[in-house]
Simulated assay, not measured.
Amino acid sequence: MKQIADGFLVEADKNDEIKIKAKEYKIEKIEGDEFSGAFVLFSIEGGFTQAMFMFGDNEGIWNGQFTGTPERWADAIEILKSLKNKG
């Protein structure tokens, strides 16, 4: 997660359209019933949140990102926590 977050900061510095409020970040855990992982959040001017996440189980690892309101990220993290293995 640290590499992903640091890479985002480098790219955001190059992009005039992305204005990050603070470059400090904290790696936080995603703890679901069957899947676990971590995410980092950045506050972006305009009231948006940028999240990068990585989670998985013994069979695979997924990573992705979210850009939107903090309220929608709260919804998204609950969805990630509730994922179940179909097998």
Rank of each mutant, 00 (worst) to 15 (best):
E24C: 01
F55R: 00
L41D: 07
T67H: 03
S43Y: 08
G60N: 02
F8H: 01
W73D: 01
F35P: 14
K84Q: 15
K84L: 08
I61N: 01
K23V: 03
N15K: 08
N15C: 11
A22D: 06
A22T: 03
K19R: 13
K21G: 01
E28L: 15
W62M: 01
T69I: 04
G7T: 14
A22C: 02
Q65D: 05
N58Q: 06
D75V: 03
K21D: 09
T69L: 09
F66M: 03
Q50C: 06
K26I: 13
L41N: 12
K21L: 06
F8S: 04
M54E: 14
N63F: 07
I61F: 01
K23A: 00
E17A: 11
K29Q: 09
E45N: 07
D33S: 15
K86E: 15
P70K: 05
G56K: 00
I27L: 13
E59I: 02
M1P: 11
F8C: 07
D16W: 08
T67K: 12
D57N: 14
V40E: 03
G7Q: 08
F53G: 02
R72E: 04
K86Q: 14
D6R: 10
A22I: 05
N58D: 11
F35T: 03
K26Y: 05
G32Q: 04
N85L: 12
S82H: 12
I4M: 10
I77W: 09
A12G: 12
I30T: 09
K14Q: 15
G47R: 07
K86D: 15
P70L: 04
G7P: 09
T49F: 15
F39G: 06
D75K: 12
E31Q: 07
D16R: 04
K84V: 14
V10M: 11
E11R: 15
D13E: 12
E11S: 13
M52R: 05
G60V: 02
K84W: 13
G46E: 11
I4A: 11
L80F: 15
W62Q: 03
M52K: 13
V40F: 02
M54D: 04
Q65V: 04
D75W: 08
I18P: 04
L83S: 06
E45F: 10
G47M: 06
G87H: 06
N58V: 05
D33L: 08
L83Q: 11
E28Y: 01
L41A: 02
K2Q: 14
T49M: 08
K29D: 11
R72T: 07
K29T: 09
F53H: 11
F42S: 01
E31M: 04
K86C: 07
D13V: 09
L9T: 14
E17T: 13
K19E: 14
I27R: 03
E45I: 03
